[in-house]
Design a protein around this nucleic acid. Sequence first.
DNA 1: GTCAGGTACCATGCATGGCACAGTACCCGG
DNA 2: CCGGGTACTGTGCCATGCATGGTACCTGAC
Lengths: 117, 117
Amino acid sequence: MVPDIAGKPAAGKAESQLRKGVLEYCVLALLREGPRYGVELLETLGAVNVMVTSQGTIYPLLSRLRRDGLVETRWQESPSGPPRRYYELTPSGHTALKEFTAIWPHFREAVDHFITD
Amino acid sequence: MVPDIAGKPAAGKAESQLRKGVLEYCVLALLREGPRYGVELLETLGAVNVMVTSQGTIYPLLSRLRRDGLVETRWQESPSGPPRRYYELTPSGHTALKEFTAIWPHFREAVDHFITD
DNA sequence: GTCAGGTACCATGCATGGCACAGTACCCGG
DNA sequence: CCGGGTACTGTGCCATGCATGGTACCTGAC
């Protein structure tokens, strides 16, 4: 067993719920710039405080994306260490990402509207 | 049985997941301006497209808020129709709302950061 | 060699929260 | 007294983040 990334011990309940349904699209967005593998995605997301997450979140998420045909994968040797599974956007993945980027601004402004009196 | 608010037949999967963990605080935010009852909250939220939801969402949510001590309620007669249960923020509710409004900007910008290349 | 430690991946089970569906109760007008 | 509108409640499903507990591979020290 390996303890998850050092950082903070995972955020509060609210953050966790916020990530639901967003993490998926953040991952898709990262893949827009080229193939990435699991741990790499985990670290890139973790670079932004509020998106810190764990392997227990990322891998099931990536499996779902693969199951739903939004990404494709291929194994590739690592220069040092075990082989890595690289994830890559499919056309469906691009479409899903575009749909989200279209919705997100509306959602964001809706929340702003209610939160800021 | 009563069909839910006319409007659209509920949005897509993505919207539904986005609402998770946000709806709760939108409701708290609305209560900041004074006591409101269930159907009223439902309509106010529904005025913003992306927040359209149903009784099946609102009432369990309100029950949770009450269970967790974030709101208090009192019954009040309606000028026409069955009595209404009015919801009101407790100190805990105010605190929870403030915590969320502190987190939300970070979250919003994190998503923007990833989504917009 | 072999073995400890780091890297990378995977599977199971839980809690949460939105939602569909179904039901109850009250009030009014005809 | 009864149909329709208003308002509230409960149950069960599903998706998702997360904790937990692995497995497998590689490298370097000894």
